[in-house]
Design a protein around this nucleic acid. Sequence first.
RNA 1: CGGGGUGUAGCGCAGCUCGGUUAGCGCGUCUGCUUUGGGAGCAGAAGGUCGCAGGUUCGAAUCCUGCCACCCCGACCA
Length: 490
Amino acid sequence: MADAITPRESDYSQWYLDVIRNAKLAEHSPVRGCMIIRPNGYAIWEYMQSAMDAMFKETGHRNAYFPIFIPQSFLAREAAHVEGFAKECAVVTHSRLKVDDDGELIVDPESQLEENLIVRPTSETIIWDTYSRWIQSWRDLPILINSWNNVVRWEMRTRLFLRTMEFLWQEGHTAHATREEAMEETLKILDIYTTFAEEYMAMPVIQGIKTARERFAGADETYCIEAIMQDGKSLQAGTSHFLGQNFAKAFNCQFQNKDNQLEYVWATSWGVSTRMIGALIMVHSDDKGLVLPPKLADTQVVLVPIYKSDVEKVAVMEAADRIQEELLEAGIRMKVDAREGFRPGWKFAENEVEGTPIRLALGPRDLENGSIELARRDTGEKEFVSQEGLATVVAEKLEAIQNNLFARALAFREEHTTKVDSYDDFKDVLDSKGGFVLAHWDGSAETETKIKDETKATIRCIPLEAIDPNGVDPLTGEASTTRVYFARAY
RNA sequence: CGGGGUGUAGCGCAGCUCGGUUAGCGCGUCUGCUUUGGGAGCAGAAGGUCGCAGGUUCGAAUCCUGCCACCCCGACCA
């Protein structure tokens, strides 16, 4: 028997870790806060990458790579940026080791670098240093670049996928001639993230704007998508920043416009990370293990052959191969679990903890009846279907599973989104069921901080379109122009 | 980085309070036979620097000190 998965009810954090371990997604590394992403986990990331990469390219972006090391002086150029990241940077100071007189391996003190190098926590500084050389004229704009890479942030407290010291992500960095164009880009990317989250991850998200306190260090405005996890906490799944001219000014990046005047460039940056895998796990999985939406499942369908004798085995495997060929032909990612030495029940259980959306079971009885057993991971439903036209049925089921996961997550979010008009209700809802609390806010940082200190809830975002304009802040009684999304968050 | 908890075979744990043969148990692993439609049964076998480093002691998984890692809560953050 595999390791038990702690039920969500009894210990949500432990459940999350148990799901990851049982599904073989990732494990801790010898270095604190870092993780080894195993093939099952990395496959999810690869599907995420390919889906988003295609969307970036459809909207005119191209990929490039910038170095992992950033001169320390670069980071200091933009004031808000350095303040935001200085406290969590890995710094390279030396270039080699040596064996000392005691036979110990030590840092060679003579190899100290002239200038320290920062392991990128994000790449704005090196990008804008580069762009300042690439951009002279309005003809050089826009620049639409994305980069798939890894970054390091020296975190105090880490959790697999949700917050690791090194993580994988994409960071887009664009340069524009006008404020309007940069803003348009910021929102375009926000829509791409939303589409990806909802259509591929089957995870409904709220779009919104961050408050000043939650804003990216160096941005004028941060847009985000936020999703509710099954424990009622909110998770920021992606951000798109309107950087204004902050980095252009810090790195003296100007262009000559059509009127022959020098202007600072307008910028955006945007990113999503392997954190999304954590979100995926927490939105759909259950007490039996991982539940994957078909679009991100490396194996969408597994077929477990069942037989006793060698004669049966030959017949069953022949049919299994034929079915596999049919499904592969139909573009379904399908595998036959033909491993010897594992009993069917064992395979069923393993595929469940690993989240495979559909399991087929084919045995001698099915050969007689021309049938096959089909089990859905999302609902646990089992039924016998005809082998004839199976590819069509399976394709429909996969779509149904994808849709059901989204619908289920959406229903959960709706149940866990509550309008409140008094501070007492605000606290009650947070404690009793969590989720988003839609409340009016007077727009002041003081109120925001006070609420955070007293309830641990933060403003996840201000909705793009005002909800119930002309309200009153329940805490201060001041006027409010919209309800905002409060939640306890990851 | 502060408070609390945990660390014993691949995984999950007991043993520790009150020091004393060769450190156990379940699952997994290996071999053989029987099995195979929801995590098989029997028989045999392998597998351990008891997180790491010091200390106390005739003797340490057990007591003391320091360190490391992980989990929970807090501050910080994608």
